[in-house]
Design a protein around this nucleic acid. Sequence first.
DNA 1: GCAGTGATGTCAGTTGCTGACGCAAGGGGT
DNA 2: ACCCCTTGCGTCAGCAACTGACATCACTGC
Lengths: 187, 187
Amino acid sequence: MARWAEDARGRLAASALELFAERGFAATTVDEVAAAAGVTQRTFFRHFRDKEEVLFADDDRLLQVLLDGVGRAEGEDAEADLGHALAVVSAELEPRREQLRRRAGVIATDVALTGRELAKQAGWTAAVAQVLQERGYPGTQADLMAQVGFAVFRNAMDRWLSQSDGPPLAAHVEQCRADVGAAFRSR
Amino acid sequence: MARWAEDARGRLAASALELFAERGFAATTVDEVAAAAGVTQRTFFRHFRDKEEVLFADDDRLLQVLLDGVGRAEGEDAEADLGHALAVVSAELEPRREQLRRRAGVIATDVALTGRELAKQAGWTAAVAQVLQERGYPGTQADLMAQVGFAVFRNAMDRWLSQSDGPPLAAHVEQCRADVGAAFRSR
DNA sequence: GCAGTGATGTCAGTTGCTGACGCAAGGGGT
DNA sequence: ACCCCTTGCGTCAGCAACTGACATCACTGC
């Protein structure tokens, strides 16, 4: 038998989301989260570099999905390739709407958390732009498309999370892409 | 004669930017910033709600400029109105390129600072979207245009700050708007 | 067996941040 | 002149976030 219960990291993440949703992020101490997971505060900070990071822990896996999606696109143009990748990510997120809504609710209550999420997405933006460049698109276009693409995705995500039984995320993404196209077509 | 030297807030902001740029954000304590400004740590936190906020103090004035810019646009369409407002803001920022570059350098070294800036801009996005709605544009279009508009602006800002003597910020903004139009035209 | 590894506990310390209270200059009213 | 209120700051005590150093002990490979 192991000396400690397994997956302390997973228990910490679960306890954190529950306590944050119940009592609020600021009103919950790391000590309480750690105690709920059956470990020490010090162990919490070994797994997550700060109190906020526990809410963004599994985002790295999602970034990989996103980059793979870009890599497997057909190479039509930068916007279309990114659209394909966003569709793949949308499919990945589709079954987790309630969990994501819960998480979004916690994040929306705190400016620092909102910022952390946006910073993480900005990092993704840079990564996507680099992959687009490697696929042969010019750098300026890659940067711009990555940033605009994420603006579109955030917007679609907001719409998706705002309803419990509306269209799937991918449909919102498609709608937003079409809207942007329409808005800029007259230029 | 006053009991204390005037403009403690201004001295704090100046000392903070200098020390952050010199030693790094994390390696500078609030005590040091306060001492450099000739006040106490407690006074620092009376003027700025936390250590980060001192870098974003005068952003609120800029938001007002932005909203006024939208309000004074011609009411052509949402994208054009926002474009007009961004041009006004660009003119306001044009003479401060070096100071903004210095500030951007500090912010880029710290994830939390990056997030704080993005969160602040997200707040602006919401405010702009509301003004656009009040001008009669449908809500979904207003949200989307505000988010995409800021993606465009951030991108233009990056390009502008990356060179010391390139085109003015407003020119970069126009270029980015045209690029987005071209990328989505084929849809 | 036995040394090495890895995840955790323990403890002490620094820093960010807040509440409560006190202090003194300036500005009003009477 | 007198009083009172406001303003801007200092002082002190205390909590919570975070970190470094070191100890512990099941497990692993030899």
